[in-house]
Structures are given as C-alpha cells and as structure tokens.
C-alpha cells in the first residue's frame, strides 16, 4: 500500500505525515513525528502507555487508525494544551511521592488521569483505581501513583470549589 500524505494537527501544529493503510496513530506519532513520549507497551489497548488526547478525549493511540485522525486535534504529554497545569501538578506529585520507576507507563497515566480529573470523572479517591484499569504499571504496585493522583484531584477540586464560591 502506498502511504497517503495526511494533514494531522499534533500538539497545535498541522503537519503532513505519510500514513499507510490502517497504520496506528501511535506508530505515526513515534515514527513520523518522533514523539517517543507515546510508548507502545502492548499494541492491544490494555496497557495504556500510548494514551493521547484526541479532540480532548483520552484514547489509546495503538488501536486508533491514524487516518481517522485527519481533521482532529491530537495532543500528547509533550504539549497538553489546556491540561498543561494539571499535568504539571501530577508530574510533580508523581516525582515527589517516588512513584516513578522504569517510567514506561507514566506518560500515558499522566495524560489519562489529568484528562479524567479535568472532565470531572474522578470525583473521589475511590474513583481512581477503577479509572486505572487500562493502565498497567509493572514496577510500582500502583499505591504511590494512586496517592499522587488523589493529591492532585483533591487540590484541583479545592481550587474549583474556591473559584465557585468566590
């Protein structure tokens, strides 16, 4: 199959990238755009290490045909747009709670969790583990990741509350 040159909006820049057949978005981001923050742990949608934002929604880019992303906005952990504040908070908490070991799963978890906090899908500490069912971490045993997410969620909820009441 011949590659097709397709305009992709990645991290705010529109660029033409060659896409062949049903080649995955993860593949194209890594090989053509050199965004190696997008990790591919399983290529089956189970591990979540390839999570990116598509029109603001977290998706696993390994199962997303790149060709289907034409005309849509792709964001990776490198340039999260309106989520940059939340992401920075979460990245800092992950570091401070010593949650990062090999590091392969972390960018995907950062992208997913900051999107879900932003969308209000994580309302309490009890919502965190169920939201992580598509994020495999083989190193940490999760507890510190869950703690870090909870601190960011609580701080963010507090900030929203203050905004709402002022």
């Amino acid at each position: 199959m011949k590659p097709e040159l397709v305009a992709l909006d990645v991290n705010g820049d529109v660029r033409y990238v060659p896409i062949t057949g049903l080649q995955s978005l993860a593949d194209v981001l890594r090989q053509e755009v050199h965004l190696t923050s997008v990790k591919v742990g399983c290529a089956e949608g189970y591990c979540g290490s390839c999570t990116v934002l598509l029109d603001g929604e977290p998706v696993v880019s390994c199962l997303m045909p790149a060709i289907a992303c034409e005309g849509r906005e792709v964001r990776t952990v490198d340039e999260p747009g309106e989520l940059s504040g939340l992401q920075a908070d979460l990245q800092r908490e992950l570091c401070e709670s010593d949650a990062v070991q090999c590091g392969m799963c972390i960018p995907g978890i950062v992208t997913l969790m900051s999107a879900l906090i932003h969308q209000g899908e994580i309302r309490s500490a009890a919502d965190i583990s169920p939201a992580l069912v598509g994020s495999i971490c083989r190193c940490s045993g999760y507890a510190r990741i869950v703690d870090a997410v909870e601190r960011v969620r609580a701080a963010h909820a507090g900030a929203l509350h203050r905004e709402g009441s002022s």
Binding site: R30, D78, Q91, L94, V100, G103, I106
Partner: peptide, 21 residues
C-alpha cells in the same frame, strides 16, 4: 535518606529515551 530520583521528572514528561525509542 529518602532522596528523590533524579530521572523521575524526564520519565514523567515522556522525555526519557529508551532503547526502543
């Protein structure tokens, strides 16, 4: 001393380059 890791920030930011990258 429970010092924090020097490689954590880049790993969390997706900047770490593994052999597979």
């Amino acid at each position: 001393v429970s010092m924090r890791r020097r490689d954590a920030a880049d790993k969390a930011a997706g900047r770490t380059v593994f052999a597979s990258d």
